[in-house]
Each structure stands twice: as structure tokens, then as C-alpha cells.
Simulated scan of single mutants.
Amino acid sequence: MRLDAGHHTLTCGACGAPLQQLKLLPVAAAPVRPAISHQPRVRKLPKAKPTKPVKRRKSLFRKLAEEAFDLVEDIFD
């Protein structure tokens, strides 16, 4: 910082030039993310509930066969 007659101006520490006269340096648009130095954590998916087996309906033929078997069984009893 340089004190002149009544006002203060900032100056470059290396060359002594006033900072108002220096060009602006370009600023990077987005900061670069550092590389991963470790293995990322593996996400565990929630376990699915075991599903109940679907109960199959009896076919018409099976129902008739059971009725016939019951009838034959009743005859022999």
C-alpha cells in the first residue's frame, strides 16, 4: 500500500505498479475436482421381500376326477 497526498492506492508487491492499471487475469470457469484417491463406497440395494408362491386354481378336469374318485371311494366303503 502506498500513501500519496490524501489517498491510498494498492500496488503490486513485485513491480510496484498500481493495481488499477494491471490487466485482470482470466478466472477458470469451474474449479477442477481432485481425483478420487480411494475406492468409492458401493451402495447396497435394499433386499426384495420374498414373494409367496401363487396358488394355482384347479382345472375343471381335476375337479371332475376328484369327484369321480370320491364317488368310487364311497361305493367301496
Rank of each mutant, 00 (worst) to 15 (best):
52 K>I: 06
72 V>W: 05
32 V>N: 03
48 A>Q: 07
64 L>A: 15
53 P>M: 10
44 K>M: 08
14 A>K: 13
22 L>Q: 12
53 P>N: 15
1 M>R: 06
17 A>N: 05
34 P>Y: 00
65 A>S: 10
59 S>R: 04
12 C>E: 02
41 R>Y: 09
18 P>C: 06
54 V>K: 07
29 A>W: 01
60 L>D: 01
5 A>R: 05
8 H>F: 11
5 A>E: 15
70 D>C: 10
14 A>N: 09
39 Q>N: 07
69 F>D: 13
28 A>F: 00
48 A>V: 12
12 C>S: 02
69 F>N: 11
7 H>T: 12
47 K>L: 14
76 F>L: 03
52 K>F: 05
14 A>P: 00
68 A>C: 10
51 T>Q: 13
43 R>N: 09
24 L>A: 11
35 A>P: 08
49 K>V: 06
75 I>L: 15
77 D>G: 12
18 P>W: 15
65 A>D: 02
67 E>M: 07
24 L>K: 07
63 K>G: 09
76 F>R: 01
28 A>R: 14
55 K>T: 15
30 A>E: 10
21 Q>H: 14
67 E>N: 06
35 A>G: 12
29 A>G: 13
52 K>L: 11
63 K>F: 00
37 S>N: 04
19 L>F: 00
62 R>M: 01
34 P>H: 04
45 L>E: 10
22 L>C: 11
5 A>K: 14
39 Q>D: 10
42 V>N: 03
34 P>S: 12
15 C>S: 01
60 L>Q: 00
24 L>S: 09
41 R>D: 14
5 A>S: 12
29 A>M: 06
47 K>E: 15
24 L>V: 04
37 S>V: 09
57 R>C: 04
17 A>C: 04
32 V>E: 08
73 E>H: 08
12 C>T: 02
64 L>W: 04
73 E>R: 11
48 A>G: 06
60 L>H: 02
43 R>I: 06
31 P>Q: 09
34 P>L: 13
41 R>L: 13
36 I>Y: 05
32 V>P: 00
17 A>H: 05
7 H>A: 10
24 L>T: 06
75 I>T: 07
17 A>I: 07
7 H>I: 08
21 Q>Y: 12
34 P>F: 03
37 S>W: 02
8 H>V: 07
29 A>E: 13
8 H>K: 10
74 D>T: 05
10 L>E: 13
13 G>P: 07
17 A>Y: 03
12 C>F: 02
49 K>C: 04
11 T>D: 02
51 T>K: 08
63 K>M: 06
2 R>W: 05
70 D>A: 10
77 D>P: 02
12 C>R: 00
25 L>T: 14
56 R>T: 12
18 P>Q: 12
51 T>M: 06
65 A>L: 15
12 C>A: 03
47 K>Q: 10
9 T>P: 00
13 G>K: 10
17 A>G: 03
12 C>P: 01
11 T>I: 13
56 R>Q: 13
59 S>G: 14
74 D>A: 08
35 A>K: 08
41 R>T: 14
28 A>G: 03
56 R>M: 14
20 Q>F: 01
52 K>M: 08
2 R>T: 13
3 L>N: 11
30 A>P: 01
73 E>K: 09
9 T>L: 09
55 K>N: 13
11 T>Q: 02
